[in-house]
Amino acid sequence: MQKRLLQWYEKNGRHELPWRNTTNIYHIYLSEIMLQQTQVNRVRDEYYPQFLAKFPTLKTLADAQESEVLAAWSGLGYYSRARNLHKTAKLCENELPKSYEELLKLPGIGSYTASAICAFGYHQNLPVLDTNIKRVIKRLFALINPSEKELTRQAVKVLNDKEPRAHNLALMDLGSLVCLPKNPKCQECPLTSECQGKEEPELYTQTKKTKYETMELFYGVCVKDDKITLVKTEGSMYKGMLSLPCVDPLEDDFLVSFKHAYTKYRLSVHLYRLDEAPKDAIWLSLEELESAPISSLVTKALTALNLKKLP
């Protein structure tokens, strides 16, 4: 089974991904953090190369200001990832630890990320359990709602001790390309003869539906001398980022509304004309906004306002 899996991976795996063609532990670590909540193509084509161009080493990241890191992360969302990445760089500016246990002590590094760094970066004999691999394991052993402990036990059972890195990457790609959540391509799977769940594959991928919270947000837009006002965010949603100032809505000053999704929130955002800027306002030109730590919500607001140039 292991041999067939690796043969399939050699022919069909995503070998072109840049973080799979490097031995740089920092680059591998960065990719794992980015990929947690972002599609592979966006990470590969945009954020990963841009971030490394600005912070090519763990040391350069450690020496940067948090605002610079957040600005480079703008658009990726889940900004606690960027803050934890920066904190970890300050703690390990020369090299990340090599043990799973030591990695777990670092900000923002959980069980999956620690095992991924150990297996993909340090070639250690550990199973890696991302969403795709978990799905493969569930179906392979016909597990319904298994615990993390049970998933790990079964993953260890099939782990290729001689080639753990390739084995984990192969399972990851198998889940991404073949063992799909819906309509899996079982006829293309190299593990189909051993798969205990192939007769009812969707039975092992049932998940609880996410409950979303709806919120209404009201922001003010103050423009003067080709600049727009932003304020530093203190709340949990976009902590440390720059945002439009919150206002009490007045219908006479209404400009535009739009919808926005952020983690578990479904937001209705309303923008209003603001004549006076808050005392703590930061004035930025459109050119300065390009390198400022702003969220995708603010970017969407600027697009909704059609501010190609500030009046």
Rank of each mutant, 00 (worst) to 15 (best):
M1P: 14
Q2M: 14
K3I: 14
L6Q: 08
W8H: 09
W8R: 07
N21I: 03
N24A: 13
I25K: 09
I25D: 07
L30E: 07
Q36Y: 09
T38R: 02
Q39C: 09
V43K: 09
P49E: 07
L61V: 03
A62K: 05
A64W: 00
S67K: 12
E68P: 06
V69R: 04
A71W: 00
G75I: 10
G77M: 06
R81L: 04
N84Q: 02
K90Y: 05
K90W: 06
K90M: 08
C92N: 03
E102D: 14
E102W: 00
L106I: 09
L106V: 01
G108I: 10
I109W: 02
G110H: 09
G110R: 11
S111A: 12
S111N: 14
Y112F: 02
T113L: 03
A114C: 04
S115V: 05
Y122V: 06
Q124A: 07
N125R: 12
P127H: 00
V128D: 00
V128N: 00
N132I: 00
I133E: 04
I137Q: 05
R139L: 06
L140D: 03
A142T: 06
S147C: 12
S147I: 07
R153P: 04
V158T: 13
P164E: 10
P164T: 13
H167V: 11
L169C: 05
L171Q: 05
D173F: 05
S176P: 09
C179Q: 09
K182F: 11
N183K: 15
C186A: 11
T192S: 15
T192A: 13
E199I: 11
T205C: 12
K209Y: 09
E213V: 13
G220A: 05
D226F: 11
D226T: 13
I228S: 00
V231L: 04
K232W: 01
G235W: 04
M241E: 06
L242H: 01
L244D: 01
P245T: 06
P245F: 02
P249M: 05
L250N: 14
E251Y: 09
D252V: 10
D253N: 15
F254H: 13
K259P: 08
A261D: 15
Y265L: 15
L274A: 07
L274T: 01
L274S: 03
E276W: 01
P278W: 01
I282G: 05
L284N: 03
L284P: 03
E288T: 08
L289G: 02
I294D: 01
S296P: 08
V298W: 03
A301F: 00
T303K: 14
N306P: 00
L307K: 08
L310T: 09
